[in-house]
């Protein structure tokens, strides 16, 4: 029983990280039709920014850790907004070229991170509580799992509220449905593009700081590793669907944990799940059937 609880909560924690990456990917794709390969780099840069904050100001205080989270999110958001403004925007409506530009950016930035911080993982410290465990139904759960889950839930709620109650949220929801009609109502939808990039980048940057706690290290490849699973999550959840991303993130991560523990084949099971979903529902769990 305690093993199952441990696997379940650890899976939820991993799912939380997947969601933090996948939410941005899904929003960006939904609104702009761009598959953003540079999203992993937003996460990695956020993680390194958070790590630098902790390294310089002291890693074990909660205040500093909170600051690291904020800095990670802010750096992710700024990097993402710049990516949209300087690179993606120039290729308006040319989706393949937009994807290619993000591919180039991903390659270049990972190399730059390696040059700056070295290619080996840097082990990370944080508040002592995160390093200890809490008993849930007899299972010792590492506390950083709870933090990741809590943060992901907050981000999900935050994005949902933003989408529902702000004018930009309205524009984004409408744009995901029918971008051309939004412009035909006199709205410059490109402002919304920059905004979804920034929001997605913030979630990814936050995810970076949390992921480095979850895995215990930062490395230039942290983002790329999570990105591939986040891609799978977005496809399974249905491209453009935020709820779909949340559901699929949990499903994929929990399944992955269980399969890893019992058969040691977590990653393969995830790919099989993807194949299965595509065979049964090519548009994903909650995707609009096109």
């Amino acid at each position: 029983m305690s093993t199952i609880v441990l696997l379940l909560i650890t899976g939820l924690g991993l799912g939380a990280l997947y969601f933090l990456v996948a939410s941005g990917l899904s929003l960006i794709y939904g609104l702009m039709g761009v598959l953003n390969f540079a999203h992993g780099s937003f996460l990695t840069l956020g993680a390194f920014a958070g790590w630098e904050v902790a390294r310089r100001l002291g890693a074990d205080s909660w205040g500093i850790f909170g600051l690291a989270l904020v800095v990670g999110a802010a750096v992710g958001a700024a990097f993402a907004a710049l990516t949209e403004l300087l690179l993606v925007r120039r290729l308006y409506e040319r989706h393949i070229e937009q994807v290619l530009v993000t591919v180039g950016l991903a390659l270049a930035t990972v190399a730059l991170f390696e040059g700056t911080w070295g290619s080996d993982p840097e082990f990370i410290e944080g508040p002592a509580w995160l390093r200890s465990t809490t008993d849930v139904a007899g299972a010792p759960i590492p506390n950083d799992r709870f933090l990741a889950i809590g943060a992901a839930v907050l981000v999900l709620v935050g994005i949902v509220l933003f989408l529902r109650y702000t004018r930009f949220g309205l524009i984004i929801r409408a744009g995901v449905e029918n971008r051309a009609m939004v412009t035909a109502l006199g709205i410059d939808v490109r402002k919304a593009f920059t905004l979804v990039f920034a929001v997605g980048g913030a979630a990814a940057g936050l995810g970076g700081v949390l992921a480095s706690q979850y895995f215990g290290y930062v490395s230039p490849h942290l983002g790329a590793h999570l990105l591939i699973f986040a891609f799978i999550v977005t496809v399974i959840g249905g491209l453009g669907s935020l709820t779909g991303a949340a559901v699929a993130a949990v499903l994929v991560a929990v399944l992955q944990q269980f399969a890893n523990y019992y058969w040691g084949v977590g990653d393969l099971v995830v790919v099989l799940l993807l194949a299965l979903v595509l065979l049964v529902r090519p548009s994903g769990l909650l995707g609009r059937s096109a």
Binding site: L170, R173, A174, N178, A180, M181, T183, A184, L185, D188
Partner: peptide, 26 residues
Amino acid sequence: TDRIVRRGVGYVPEDREVFAGLTVAE
């Protein structure tokens, strides 16, 4: 397109193109 519309051109498209997931008020 958005600039043209803001110059004072209203558009009622073929097939209505309402945003199905949004409420009437939205």
